[in-house]
Amino acid sequence: MLKAKVYVNLKNTVVDPQGLATKNALKSLNYEREIEEVRVGKLIDIRLDMSDRKKAEQMIDEMCKKLLSNPTIEDYSFTLEEVE
């Protein structure tokens, strides 16, 4: 079994209203000085019933392009690991 962790984030060039709101909230909790930027993204866990890593990578990449991210506004990345 393989497990993919897919991270989807808004591109750096795109304004992130959720990130901004979260940043302001954190600032009001007295993290005023330390916080530089907050971006809110998604983490998608996918368990795959296969062992071929290369094939899995290809497949996840395809999923990201097709559905999991919107290339107009989002970037994605993922990791693959063996699981029980």
Binding site: L10, V15, Q18
Partner: peptide, 15 residues
Amino acid sequence: EAGLLPGAMLRNKNV
């Protein structure tokens, strides 16, 4: 999303 029109939607500025 279907690509029939260009661009994308983000959350409202005031969330």
